[in-house]
């Protein structure tokens, strides 16, 4: 099995005085200390990676804990929404927007050309998408959204959209 913390501490303590005695030259001393530290660090690093992987592989981690581990990684990665569902929700958000005639809204409608919205309205519509899908659209992406199609494409390709 890999060395535990105590062993490494002892190693550190044992190494330090002899190194100091051997090297009166300051540069050589720092070099030697760096080498010792490197050795210690490689020593420290290897066992950690091995034990975590080995524990999971050997099945020593309880099932519940393993499920918890996998679910947190999924959470951070997020998941992509189905494009059809995104399209439906985007269309209904646009239909609910005050200045839009619901009958004009189609999955291919352009905000300014087809729905008669101006750039200020477009900003408000994009904010409404943010609220509906629960994530923030950065300025440079928000500028590119000018139609229902571009909105659906962007939201469907965004992992944090809910």
């Amino acid at each position: 099995m890999s060395p535990d913390k105590h062993e490494i501490l002892q190693l550190h303590v044992a190494l330090s005085p002899p190194l100091a005695r051997l090297t009166p030259n300051r540069e050589r001393k720092t070099m030697a200390m760096a080498a010792a530290r490197r050795a210690l660090l490689t020593h420290l690093r290897v066992p950690v990676a091995r034990t975590a992987a080995a524990a999971v592989a050997a099945g020593t981690v309880p099932v519940a804990a393993r499920r918890l581990l996998s679910s947190t990684t999924e959470e951070t990665k997020g998941s992509f929404l189905d494009k059809g569902e995104v399209a439906d929700r985007v269309v209904s958000v646009v239909k609910n927007f005050q200045k839009v005639e619901p009958a004009k809204v189609t999955p291919t409608a352009h905000f300014q050309k087809d729905l008669g919205l101006d750039s200020l309205d477009t900003v408000e519509v994009v904010m409404a998408f943010e609220e509906e899908f629960g994530f923030e659209i950065p300025d440079n992406e928000a500028e590119k959204i000018d139609s229902i199609k571009t909105a659906v494409d962007f939201i469907a390709s965004h992992p944090q959209a809910k």
């Binding site: 750039s119 200020l120 900003v123 408000e124 994009v126 904010m127 609220e131 300025d139 500028e143």
Partner: peptide
């Protein structure tokens, strides 16, 4: 610029929501 104005508008709307 147009982008600056729209960005300010967006910031105001974001702040309004808070």
């Amino acid at each position: 610029t147009r982008a600056e104005v729209l960005s300010l508008f967006r910031s105001l709307l974001r702040t309004a929501k808070q």
